[in-house]
Design a protein around this nucleic acid. Structure first.
Lengths: 150, 150
DNA sequence: CTTGATGGTTTACAATCGTAGCCGATAAGT
DNA sequence: ACTTATCGGCTACGATTGTAAACCATCAAG
């Protein structure tokens, strides 16, 4: 369940969105085939998910004639950012640094990506606090130091 | 639904885990009060979630006598990392850089966090590719360039 | 010993999700 | 025109989730 533009998109629906973002304006057939290949879903499954996404306003059905094409209504990048924020909003602020570190370590990033991140970090370093406070239970700072991974 | 240690922990359950991680080994009463304060849940709701987490093996009931204490069985940091990986595994590899950038921009990070990230990035820069390929539909690279946020 | 508080266990129930079959309309082939 | 393959809509159904009440056991107080 990931939130993008105030609607809740389920995991399976999310997969359909991914395909839609990649394919642009596919017909249902193209989408069905793609999902069949990617996830092994039956045609009905993809159709259902597509319909639910339309109901939720995350996808548009375009055209008047019979082979409609479908298009994502919510953008890919904003949805990614929303999903990531949703995740980090639900973890202790103290853990964000270590978690980001782990993500960076495990992902493939281009030279350009890295340069951008470095520049953001350099800027951020200027005003960074010595320590981030735990925000788990308001008023208390009960989280232990970060490195007790267990 | 976030995956940590091969069990699926739902959103609400996740909130309970957060409290457990913060509180350590609370009694059910303490936990119930915390969740009532944080989320406005009734005692029953917290009890149900706690039970489901125990069934799922994510939480341990400790003690033999009547006021048991409860403890998270899965660690906080690994769960965070698992959740983050889960998220990034389900987005186009091309988008990872921009998404991480947005996360870094919106989070509070300590000087130490930043230094650590900078060191990881410096290391990673040595072997970084010029460009990350789209991995959305295998065999094709259909994703547009990253900066068409819309 | 009865009683009530406190904590633990079962049951409930509507909403959403994952997964998919079936049906009706329309377009295409013969 | 008649049959058939497609496409889109409706129906289905068990599992999980969010939310919580009801019930039961046990300990302490009277």
């Amino acid at each position: 369940m990931i939130d993008a533009k105030n609607v809740t998109i389920s995991d399976s629906e999310w997969e359909v969105m991914r395909a839609l973002w990649t394919m642009g304006k596919p017909t249902s057939r193209e989408l069905i085939d793609a999902m069949a290949g990617l996830k092994g879903w039956s045609a009905s499954t993809t159709k259902t998910l597509l319909h639910r996404l339309i109901e939720k306003g995350a996808v548009n059905k375009i055209g008047a004639a019979r082979p409609f094409v479908y298009q994502a209504e919510v953008g890919e990048a904003p949805s990614m950012v929303a999903a990531a924020n949703d995740l980090f909003d639900h973890m202790c602020a103290m853990r964000a640094g270590a978690t980001i570190a782990s993500v960076i370590e495990s992902r493939e990033l281009s030279k350009n990506d890295i340069a951008k991140l470095q520049s953001i970090l350099a800027e951020k370093a200027k005003t960074a606090p010595e320590k981030v406070e735990c925000n788990c239970l308001p008023g208390h700072h009960m989280c232990k130091e970060v490195d007790d991974d267990g």
